[in-house]
Amino acid sequence: MPDTESILRLNDVYHTYSYGTPWAKAALDGVSFQLRPEETVIVTGSNGSGKSTLLQHMNGLLKPERGQIYFKGQDIWQDKKNIRQVRFQIGIAFQFPEYQLFHKTVAEDIAFGPKNMGLTASQINERTEEALFFVGLEQKIKDYSPQRLSTGEKRRVSLAGIIAMQPKILLLDEPTVGLDPQGGQLIMERMRAYQQARGIALVIVTHDLENVGAVTDRVIMMKEGKIHREGQLSKILAGAPDDELPKPVITQLFQELSARGVPVNRGTMLVNEAAAQILDLYNKRKEKRA
């Protein structure tokens, strides 16, 4: 069934690792999901809930045991020869992508994907420069060896290597894990800016809900291979019990206030939203006094 609404659609996808062995493990248990073009989706959930497995299905690195995956209305596994073309259009950054840097220079590593796509040297150069710009790195590091960069810089170089393929969908697996707060925030901001500039779809796996409040349209929460909750972040934060996901500090504060009878929104997560509500309460109070 071709559809124009979504750029990517997963239809009842199942995946079992080590099928038929004593340690067989159902990692995806009937997941259906649609991604609209230009949409940002956050995927969260505890370790082992199947987030990375889900992401690898989205660009055809893993083949579903059951169910289909449609990219622009086409079943990506219909013709196995086309899978490489699909992978060029759906970029994925694994957890700790910096482990996979292996070229002698930064520029060579960024060029790995575009080269495989068969682009010319000048096109590759242009894309490399543009990708470095998007991840906020200086052009002069092109000739550096990746091994002498800091962890945050390495991470951004590996992201540049994916951006340089100019994918229609960008999948990021825990892009901020292991970085300092500023480094993490910088990556989130840069990726969001890139997504907006290019009008692509963005899927981010993260536990770091503190940093994504301003970024996201939609959140998916995975649990034991299934989609457990789905919807707007503020709604999910308001509804989920405390031990289910790490709530941002502001959310915790506002839920505490709400529990003590103050009329505030339990799904608050951004500083400006919080300030607006506090100001509102303060003004009402002042009016009452006057």
């Binding site: 690195l61 694994f94 482990y99 292996f102």
Partner: peptide, 27 residues
């Protein structure tokens, strides 16, 4: 993990001819 990361960037690991595959394995 590394193979998958390279596959995602279009390395010939589960496709391509024998020379391309050997080159991909070397990297």
């Amino acid at each position: 993990r590394i193979l998958n990361a390279q596959k995602a960037r279009g390395a010939y690991i589960d496709s391509g001819n024998i020379t391309q595959r050997v080159q991909a394995m070397v990297s």
